[in-house]
């Protein structure tokens, strides 16, 4: 459709047709405002292109759905593991009840229990799959509460044994932070802070890397955390159990 004024539908408009008006405006004029408008248009173009690319990049790196899938995966793996454990324990119980293997079986069970409790209480060294993390913190910005969050996050992710800066972290461990110096259970923790945890490497790593999680918090504080999943890590630091003076078990 061109701006032919003879077109009957626009006979009531004596001035130039809208197309012609558009063309007239399109003619280059070297006025200051025109140059300004052109530069604004350039800015707008750059803005649109940038924003589109930003949105596309974000769509790729957001990964919220894969994260969810991984969480779901972890849960179902855990459920099946627990199921297997239930069956195993039931079999053990049946064996014990029937009395086929008597003393040896009970002894083996007791030893297994001692091992488990030793690892949990931090009185024996442990090894297994897990992760190592090194937090280099030149500004001493990683404070006690953050370390506490880190420990809690690791426990939530199913870490079975944790060592931070050469100190075994157990149920009674406490984190101190005075004047930028960290200590756990009264023992000083040097920097960079080295964290070793035994547990499912994937779960531990995703718990650390989750958006808004520990690694991001550390980065926001100006420190850097490097994390590596390991097929085998060793937690060798031991915790000295305190002698109980008051509590005794209920039989």
């Amino acid at each position: 459709m061109s701006g032919t004024p003879s077109s009957p539908s626009r006979g009531h408009r004596p001035s130039a047709g809208p197309w012609r008006r558009l063309v007239r405006l399109g003619r280059p004029r070297a006025t200051k405002a025109n140059v300004l408008a052109a530069s604004l248009a350039v800015l707008l173009g750059v803005g649109i292109a940038t924003q589109v690319q930003l949105t596309q990049e974000r769509g790729l790196s957001q990964l919220s759905q894969p994260d969810l899938v991984r969480v779901l995966d972890n849960i179902s793996v855990r459920a099946s593991r627990l199921d297997a454990q239930v069956r195993e324990l039931e079999a053990t119980r049946d064996r014990l009840r029937s009395g086929t293997g008597t003393t040896a079986e009970a002894l083996a069970q007791a030893q297994k229990r001692v091992d488990t409790l030793g690892i949990l209480a931090g009185t024996v060294a442990a090894k297994g799959p897990g992760m190592r993390m090194s937090i280099s913190d030149p500004g001493n910005q990683v404070t006690g509460p953050l370390v506490l969050d880190l420990i809690q996050e690791l426990r939530d992710a199913g870490a079975e044994s944790i060592e931070i800066g050469g100190v075994r972290v157990v149920a009674s461990s406490y984190v101190e932070d005075s004047g930028g110096r960290l200590s756990i259970d009264g023992k000083p923790v040097g920097r960079p802070v080295l964290v070793t945890a035994i547990g499912d490497p994937e779960t531990l790593a995703s718990a650390m890397m989750i958006p808004g999680g520990i690694v991001e918090t550390i980065r926001q504080k100006g420190a850097t955390a490097t994390l590596s999943k390991q097929p085998t890590v060793e937690v060798t630091a031991l915790h000295q159990p305190l002698t109980l003076t008051q509590a005794t078990p209920v039989p």
């Binding site: 399109g26 003619r27 280059p28 025109n34 140059v35 408008a37 052109a38 530069s39 604004l40 248009a41 350039v42 800015l43 707008l44 173009g45 750059v46 803005g47 649109i48 292109a49 940038t50 690319q53």
Partner: peptide, 16 residues
């Protein structure tokens, strides 16, 4: 016309 060309130029700049 110049603003339209500017818009295209800006899009190209942003993409490149």
């Amino acid at each position: 016309m110049i603003p339209a060309l500017g818009l295209l130029l800006g899009l190209a700049l942003g993409l490149l």
